[in-house]
Amino acid sequence: MTFLLDVKGLNVRFRTEFGLVHAVNEVSFSVSKGETLAVVGESGSGKSVTALALMRLLDRTALIDGEASFEGVNLFTMSEKEMQKIRGARIGMIFQDPMTALNPVFTVGDQIAEVVLIHRDCTKQEAKTRAIEMMGLVGIPDSRRRVDQYPHEFSGGMRQRAMIAMAIANSPSLLIADEPTTALDVTVQAQVMEVIRSVQESIGLTVMLITHDLGLVAGFADRIQVMYAGQLVETAERDRIFYETRNPYTRALLDSIPSQLGVPGTELKTIGGNPPSLLSPPPGCLFQPRCVHATEDCRMTRPELKSVGQNHLSRCLRSSDLGVLR
């Protein structure tokens, strides 16, 4: 089995005036060619930081260690110059807020063409043609005319499509989508997810989808990994995460969504308390103070990520005696 991306022992720490913040701790995972991996977690779980670290987009306050091999090279040891050849060419990325990610003083077409010009030996005209082609691919109607428009002339959904066009203009093998639809209305979200799916099929893209929305993941991901307080707590093929949940945090997260299928008006299950401070994480299991299954042992011993089934890992001391959580 060859992986497109193989991350081993990723740690990200931020230097702050209060001390080191352990944002990502010993995260290891791999993404196979063509699959969609969803990284799910709440704010502060480290899901975005993981993506930004892989793209080497974090600033100097971040201390990164670990290994990330992508198409046979280690992303963390290459020079900035080499990294530039990967970013936007081999790995494309789209962000949550398409308004701030586009430059308001250049036309959308120029911004897509720029990405092409940087990475390819081609003329401006060829780059523009490519931009028009990409805009068509992501479903921007009338792309010949809209290529010369500015971002403010685009709606939120159209801007996100333009971002996708930019991210895939150089036919990357990996697309990292960080909360791509969080800022969008639900009908537009459905359109944008459809675009990502169709692009994925037409150019054979591998997608890493970062989101807090378990609903989105249910219809879109092949595999899911759940993060909590900078750690990977559970990972498995999609249906196993939903129907054979093994980690108490994943279970609690699933239970706290008011489901379209649940009984309205009833008390929702909640996760008491708040996530721990990552400045000085407590000993033992990081979820333990909020966990309904916690024991004395959980307070003392930090659990490891262990295999609990086929390609199914969970970080819980009690996973064998708790079994499948419903």
């Binding site: 959904g157 879109f220 299928l261």
Partner: peptide, 24 residues
């Protein structure tokens, strides 16, 4: 609008026929 809401249940998601509204 209801058909666009993703449901946190893979089996239901697979069997749903979604109407994706065009435009904004």
């Amino acid at each position: 609008l209801l058909s666009a809401v993703p449901l946190a249940d893979p089996v239901t998601e697979r069997s749903r026929k979604r109407i994706v509204l065009q435009g904004d």
